[in-house]
Every structure is written in C-alpha cells, then in structure tokens.
C-alpha cells in the first residue's frame, strides 16, 4: 500500500457503463441482423458494413478534427446507430445513399447537438427520414426477400404500401388482405426494409434487453397497446376501410421502432409515467399516419414527433417523490 485513496461515498459502483449498455443493444440486434443477412443476402451484408463503418468513421473524424475533443466511438453508440440505420432501409439501397444517411444521422442529428446524450431526435431515424424524403425512389422500392443464396429478386411493395395503394384505388381491406397471412409476418418474408422482416428475431432481442435490465418494457408495451387500441376502434367502425389491429402490430417497422428506436435512452422520457405517455403518443400517431397520412408507414415520423416533446414530458411527468404528494 502506498497512498490511501479517498473519495466521497459510495465506494463501489455497478458494472454498467455506457459502453456495456450499447454493447447489450448491439447483441440484442444481432438476431435481427442475422435474419436480414439470411433473407436478403450479400447486398444486405454490404449495406450493414457501409452503414456501421461510415457511422463510426464519421463520428471519429468529426470529434477529432472538427470538435477537437476526445473521440467517443469507444462508447459504441455509433455502431448502434449504424446497425439501426441499415435495418431501416431496403436492402436494394445503393451504398452511397446509406452513406448520406449515416452522415445525416451522425453528423447532423447527433454531433451537431453536442454528441451522445445531447441529441433531441434518434439519429438513425433522422437519417432514415432524411433518405425517405430525399431519395423516395430508393427508399420505397421494396423487394421481395431473395435470400442469401437465392436469385430472382422480385420487386414489390410492403403490405402497408400495397394496402394504402389498394384503398386509394377503391378496393376493400378484405380483398387486399387475402395475399398475406399473420404467420408470414411473424416469421419474416414480407417485402420491407431489412429490419421489418422478422418480428420474432426483433422480439427476441427485446426480451434480451429486458432481462439485462437495459430498458424497461413500458414504452414498448404502451406503443403496442396504443396501436392495438386505436386500430381496433377504427377497424371496428369500418372494417372495409381500415386494417385490423394484428396486421397493424405485425407489419412495417413497428416492432423495430417500438423495441429499439423509441426506447433509445437519450430521446425518451426519464420517468415511467412519461414513458407511457410517450409510447401512447407514438402508437396513436403511427396508426393515424398509416390510416390518413400520405405515407404508408408512420412509425418513424411518430417517434420523431414524440422525441420533440420529450423535454416537456420530462417536466410534466415526474416520479412521485418520497413522502410528498
């Protein structure tokens, strides 16, 4: 022993660190990533590499040369952003488009606000929405999964897209729904962006995060609840015009968004109460956009809109303080 250490209490600390939490998120995303590799093949692998690589590289370069601060790539948040971004675009997207997405996500949505912890919106979602409005052709040309070893890419639209289109042309939901089955949606194989294909893989990751106590379930559950309830009401009133709750829960990016994007620490409320309000808001807005908006899918927009009111939610919905009303 040489010099005694002296510090204020507590003297022990939990093993969590920003890096370990982010690593857990990466691990939780792995099943979905592997699924997307299997279903979409080499294109998807390349896309993932470009997305993660450019996110990490951009963060390193910007923090080092523009912000002149110690690099923050060690916390793995850029890796998470990269994976989420790649899972959020169709596998047919060209590599340079996803690079632009990464640039927007990391440089504009995250670092220009001061880096991890300071951003208002989920970086991957900002990147995705930017691409969606800038390159609609690439972002809405969905392809039927072709498989790691398969050929014959079939270009088509997502179930949500097909139904939106169909309804606008006057068809009823029942007619359009004939081509899809719920088990197909649950186990994969419907047209969509990479992360929308296998609900089970995403849910497995979500359960992993819950077990590791990285996130709490309230936000995700309240999104599911709000989506189910809102669509149940509309579907109950007019089943020919509106899709049913199960379809709404299983299609599109809802599961990816609810499990991994809405639960992002930085851009979600701190308290459980706030989280539930946040989740209900996302669920409600998602269904509204799907039913009445001009885009077939609304999860990204719904999350971004609710991200912007998080500071207010943090102010309004506080945990009950001990011994106070």
């Amino acid at each position: 022993m040489n010099k005694l250490l002296v510090s204020p209490s507590p003297h022990i600390h939990s093993k969590d660190s920003t890096k370990s939490l982010m690593l857990d998120v990466v691990i939780a995303l792995l099943p979905a990533v592997l699924c997307s590799f299997v279903f979409y093949g080499w294109n998807e692998i390349l896309l993932m590499l470009v997305s993660v690589g450019s996110c990490v590289l951009l963060e390193w370069a910007v923090t080092k040369y523009l912000m002149k601060k110690p690099s923050t790539i060690g916390d793995l948040s850029a890796v998470v952003t990269g994976i989420l971004l790649a899972l959020n675009v169709p596998y047919t997207t060209p590599w340079w488009v996803i690079f632009i997405g990464a640039l927007v996500a990391v440089c504009i949505a995250k670092l220009s606000f001061g880096g991890l912890g300071q951003n208002i919106w989920n970086p991957a979602l900002v990147g995705r929405v930017f691409l969606l409005v800038s390159f609609p052709t690439y972002m809405t040309t969905w392809s039927q999964p072709q498989g790691l070893f398969g050929a014959d890419a079939v270009t088509g639209a997502t179930p949500l897209g097909v139904i939106k289109e169909g309804i606008m042309q006057g068809a009823t939901v029942q007619d359009l729904m004939g081509q899809y089955s719920y088990s197909q949606m649950l186990f994969a194989n419907l047209g969509g962006s990479a992360g929308e294909v296998c609900a089970l893989a995403l849910l497995a990751g979500f359960v992993y995060l819950l077990c590791r106590r990285v996130i709490k379930p309230w936000i995700t559950l309240s999104i599911f609840g709000a989506v189910a309830l809102t669509s149940l009401i509309f579907w109950g009133i007019h089943p020919a015009r509106f899709t049913d709750p199960v379809f709404n829960l299983l299609t599109g990016g809802l599961i990816l968004g609810a499990c991994f994007m809405a639960t992002d620490y930085v851009t979600s409320p701190m308290s459980t109460k706030g989280g539930i309000v946040f989740g209900v808001g996302i669920g409600f807005l998602t269904v509204m956009i799907r039913y009445f908006g001009s885009y077939p899918e609304g999860v990204s927009f719904a999350i971004l809109i609710m991200n912007s009111v998080v500071p207010l939610l943090n102010m309004w919905f506080k945990q009950k303080k001990f011994g106070r009303k």
């Binding site: 010099k3 005694l4 250490l5 002296v6 510090s7 204020p8």
Partner: peptide, 22 residues
C-alpha cells in the same frame, strides 16, 4: 508531500466537506 490520493469530483468544496486534504 502527498499522503493520500483524492478520487472524487474536482471541487475544493466537495473535498473540504469530505476530509482535510491529501
């Protein structure tokens, strides 16, 4: 000469409340 090593937030106020100094 230092007799111990401080491992808390770098603030004299915090340090003074904790102990007499290193």
């Amino acid at each position: 000469p230092k007799t111990n090593d401080y491992d808390g937030v770098a603030s004299c106020k915090v340090k003074a409340a904790l102990y007499s100094g290193d």
